[in-house]
Every structure is written in structure tokens, then in C-alpha cells.
Design a protein around this nucleic acid. Structure first.
Length: 496
RNA sequence: GCCUCCAUCGUCUAGUGGCCCAGGACGGAGCCCUCUCAAGGCUCAAACAGGGGUUCGAGUCCCCUUGGAGGCACCA
């Protein structure tokens, strides 16, 4: 890893940015950072029919949110642009022609209908479907004549018929393919647009890409891409085919239907959703970094800087990984606790605002420390601390009555609590708590019983951040008000 | 069907021939701490898919089987 790597992330804007692409981009980024090279973003939009409105934006937003800023690419430019393939159409055409002249590609005039017939016949004969070679030996001169006549055509790669192709994947090692199993793939469509196979190879060469991380779905065409490089006489980049992510059960990729189910469950494989769900980019990065890579036998908590420092190709793992959302939760908790109060407090604000609260920054900074270690996602903070911003709370009568206590007893205790509260000249937790504990002893009760009533009265819930710290933030006036309200509710219960 | 890849606890993984009757983490169970919920600490259960080789010795190398995955478009 001595040389500076130029690693590219080359998504096609045909869908939403998900965990798989994020992990590929992460490895690209880490390698580039580690080697003081460049991380390049290239938009592979040659299939305009499938290009999705807004997809490129979501991609870029996702990368930036994750902290994967590209050194070259759309918006930032670079010496090897343009970085959007639709803007490079002529380049591909030029190289395709060159390949024809090199006798490594040929013009093909077969119609889609004819092709389909051939394929159907092959299926019937239980043969592998492949191009039948009809146009393979049409001379350039004849092809040029037919093209001049306006005949529609594509350009195909002339795959060797005999022998084998040996390719090397840095992570998986050497692989050998029989050339007769390789198809004469289309390089340029009849509309004049290059296909991925040509465009990616040409761009990787022209952009001086040294390392290609891509999904294992490219393994079957791997020999073809290597062959195209070789036909031009170009040096191949270092190839790494990352394994796919499997659904949590480990059985297959996640379907559209299952993706929808996960979102209902507060989980998602889409980066944008994860952000909205209250996950930290730090946690997502840490989580996906470990799906296919590891550092040693015991370290798991990594910041981006750690990863840049520790990343290496030889620790990559080729086996497919099942997505484990509970582990994301774990990492999110760890990274939340790793944030400064101020940082976390800022990140919490949008979640409160989304629920209609207008969180005061100074109050937020007081609340943050007492909820920090209780959060799994940012989103949860609202349910846990919303009561700080409410005018009043609505305690449930049953919850106001501790276990093994009658309504009447609870009512009496509540009044005792109120007395302590009223006579206290402060609700500072270090002062109030000892006073309450005195009351607990005087009444010969368990702390949980007295504090339970107080908690439900003040926070409206049986689960809350630390009680006395919470009351301090709420202020004496509101605490008294809420305690009186709880007594009223208990009183009504008794009189029934 | 054909081609290719992958194979250690439920899951993510460490392990590159002896350091492994297999280590860490998540999740699970239990205990401790404790004003609730968490967080934290400690403990426990839990795996080398099967079969052949190679070797003094195999989780680690080779082969087969099985299982899983990916691909077989004028998509990427």
C-alpha cells in the first residue's frame, strides 16, 4: 500500500443509496485516504431509461453525510472529467472503434427479434444462451458500408473462442474461466451509448484508477473486463470483488417487500432512512466497515480516523455477510456515548423539532447528559425527554400507585412528598435527594415506592431519566404543580 | 440448466500447519450496581457443514459431496 491509490466509487443513479454501496464507497475512501491518494466519484448513467430522478442527489447527500467526501467527481471537478458518463459518450465511441480496428470487437447488425429467436432455440436445446457469432466476421469495410446505409447496429466484443482467461482478484486470488463460456457482449448499444462493460473499463484507464472495489455480481463478467483492458494493451487495476450483503436471516438478498417491512420496524438498508431513524453516520460507518473487513481479534469500536489508520486490503473477507441490525443499535449507542454533550445536543434538536417541540438550546444541553447513556437512536430522545418541554403531563392513575400499595396509601405518600417539596428551598438534586430519602426512612418504605410516585407525577411515565436531575431541570414551580395534579388524580380515584 | 464465488458459535468475525479441547463482539441467560430505564462490571451457554486425502501434526493445504449466494439483457 505504498503507492497512492486512485479508487473510484461508480454508482449508477438508478436506485436509492443502500448499505452495499455505502460499504464499497467506504473502502474506496479508506484506501484513498490511507495511501494519500484520491477518492473519485463517477456517475454511471449510461442507461438513461433507468436513471431515477433525484437518485444522484441522494447518493451525494448520503456520501457526504457519511463523511465520504470525494476528491474528484461531480460538483468538485478534477483533472480527468467529466465524471458523468453521459457526458463522455464520444470518448467511448472512439475507443470502441479502436477495438474494432484491433480486431477485438465487431459491428453486429442482428436485430433484437433475431437474437431472441436464437436464444429461445438455445434454451430449447438446453444450450447456454450466447451470441451465435453471425456478424463476427463482417469486415470493417462492409460494416462501414452498411452503417452508411443507415442500418442499425451495435458493437460487440470479440471474445476469444478458445483457451482460458486467467484473472486475479486481490482478495479472492486467481480465477480461471473457459473462454468458450464467455459471450460476445455488447459494448455499444444501437443508440450509440456505451454499456457499462466498455464505459467502466475506458474510464478506469483514462482516470488512472489503480483499485476497483465492486460487488461480487460483477464476478461473471470479470474476465470480460480484464480482456477488454488487455485488448487495448492497458494495465489492469487491482480488482477486489466484495461479497453481497444478505438479509438478516442469511438467506439471500433483501427483496423490495422485505425492505419495506424493515422500515416499518425502524430499520432500513437505505442510508437516507438510517439518518432519519436517528442513526449516527459514525455508527453506520463503524458497522459496515466490519462487514467484510476486520482489524484484529478484539477491536471493534472505530472512528473514521481509526479506520483510515488501520484499513488494509489483506484483512478483507470474501464470505457474504448477513445484515445484523441489532449490532447497528449497539454501535449507535457506543458512538452516541462517545459524543461531547454539545455535539450530541445539537444533533438531538432536529428530532425534537420534527415532533413539534421548540427545544431551548440551554435546556437541551442540560438534558443531554442525563439521557446520553440511555439512547440507542437519536430518535428515542423525544419519547424519553419530551416531558421537559410539555406544559403539564398526564400521569396514569394506576401508574401513580406503586406495587403493593393501595390508592389511599399512595395518596398519603404523595401528600408527604408534596410537603417536602414545598418546604424545600431548592430542587437542586444534591439537596433534594437526601431530603426525599429522609422521608423514605420516616415512612419506612422502599426508595422505589416513594420515588416511583414522584417519577410518574413529574415525568408522566414510569420510565424516565434520573429523577432528581430531571426535577432540577424542570424547576420547582412546575414540579410542585405536577405533584399537586397527581394528588388530585389520586384523590379522585379514592373518592370513587 | 450452465458459469462463478462462498463455507468457524443464531449473527459479524479472529485464526495464513503445532501458540486453538478455537479468541472477540452483537444477541441470549444469570449475577452485581441501582430511584425507573439504561449504561457499566462479572459469569455462563453457543461454532471449525460432511467425507476423503497431504502431513509427525489440519479450522488452517488439496479433492469430492452438501449447503448457501451471485450471474447468464441493446441493466448496472
Amino acid at each position: 500500500m505504498e503507492i497512492s491509490a486512485r479508487a473510484r466509487f461508480a454508482p449508477s443513479p438508478t436506485g436509492r443509496m443502500h448499505l452495499g454501496s455505502a460499504r464499497t464507497a467506504l473502502y474506496d475512501f479508506l484506501l484513498a485516504q490511507k495511501t494519500k491518494g484520491q477518492f473519485i466519484l463517477r456517475i454511471e448513467d449510461t442507461d438513461q431509461k433507468r436513471t431515477l430522478e433525484g437518485a444522484e442527489q441522494e447518493l451525494k447527500d448520503g456520501l457526504r453525510w457519511l463523511g465520504l467526501q470525494w476528491d474528484e467527481g461531480p460538483d468538485v471537478g478534477g483533472d480527468f472529467g467529466p465524471y458523468r458518463q453521459t457526458e463522455r459518450k464520444d470518448i467511448y465511441l472512439q475507443y470502441a472503434r479502436k477495438l474494432v480496428e484491433l480486431d477485438s470487437a465487431f459491428y453486429c447488425f442482428c436485430t433484437p427479434e433475431k437474437l431472441k429467436k436464437v436464444r429461445d432455440q438455445q434454451i430449447e436445446n438446453k444450450e447456454n444462451t450466447h451470441y451465435d457469432g453471425t456478424c463476427r466476421n463482417i469486415s470493417i469495410a462492409e460494416a462501414d458500408r452498411r452503417i452508411a446505409d443507415g442500418e442499425t447496429h451495435v458493437i460487440r466484443f470479440k471474445t476469444p473462442n478458445e483457451g482460458q482467461t486467467r484473472v486475479v482478484d486481490q482478495m479472492r486470488g486467481e480465477m480461471t474461466f473457459d473462454n468458450k463460456t464467455l459471450d460476445d457482449i455488447i459494448l455499444v448499444k444501437s443508440d450509440g451509448f456505451a454499456l457499462y462493460h466498455l464505459a467502466a473499463v475506458v474510464d478506469d484507464h483514462l482516470m488512472k484508477i489503480t483499485h476497483v472495489f465492486r460487488g461480487s455480481e460483477w464476478l461473471p463478467t470479470f474476465p470480460l473486463h480484464a480482456l477488454i483492458h488487455r485488448a487495448f494493451g492497458w494495465k489492469e487495476p487491482v480488482w477486489v470483488h466484495l461479497s453481497v450483503f444478505l438479509k438478516p436471516s442469511g438467506k439471500g438478498k433483501m427483496s423490495k417487500r422485505e425492505q419495506a417491512d424493515f422500515i416499518k420496524d425502524g430499520k432500513s438498508i437505505f442510508i437516507k432512512d438510517l439518518r432519519d431513524l436517528g442513526y449516527l453516520p459514525e455508527a453506520v460507518i463503524n458497522w459496515i466497515s466490519l462487514m467484510g473487513w476486520s482489524y484484529d481479534s478484539h477491536s471493534e469500536f472505530f472512528t473514521m480516523d481509526d479506520l483510515i489508520d488501520k484499513f488494509s486490503l489483506d484483512k478483507l473477507n470474501a464470505s457474504p455477510a448477513a445484515i445484523n441490525f441489532t449490532k447497528l443499535d449497539h454501535f449507535n449507542g457506543l458512538h452516541i456515548r462517545n459524543l461531547t454533550i454539545q455535539d450530541l445536543s445539537h444533533r438531538l434538536v432536529p428530532f425534537f423539532e420534527a415532533k413539534g417541540y421548540k427545544p431551548d438550546p440551554s435546556i437541551m444541553e442540560k438534558i443531554t447528559p442525563i439521557i446520553q447513556e440511555r439512547l440507542v437512536t437519536l430518535d428515542e430522545s423525544v419519547g424519553l425527554a419530551g416531558f421537559f418541554f410539555e406544559e403539564n403531563v398526564a400521569p396514569d392513575v394506576q401508574e401513580l400507585i406503586p406495587n403493593k400499595m393501595s390508592a389511599g396509601e399512595a395518596y398519603a405518600v404523595a401528600n408527604d412528598i408534596l410537603m417536602v417539596l414545598e418546604s424545600a428551598n431548592t430542587v437542586a438534586h444534591e439537596v433534594l435527594e437526601p431530603q426525599m430519602r429522609e422521608l423514605v426512612e420516616k415512612l419506612n418504605l422502599k426508595p422505589g415506592q416513594v420515588f416511583g410516585i414522584l417519577r410518574v407525577a413529574v415525568t408522566g411515565s414510569i420510565v424516565s431519566p434520573p429523577l432528581f436531575e430531571s426535577m432540577e431541570i424542570i424547576g420547582k414551580e412546575k414540579v410542585l404543580e405536577r405533584m399537586k395534579n397527581a394528588i388530585k388524580i389520586l384523590g379522585q380515584m379514592i373518592s370513587k
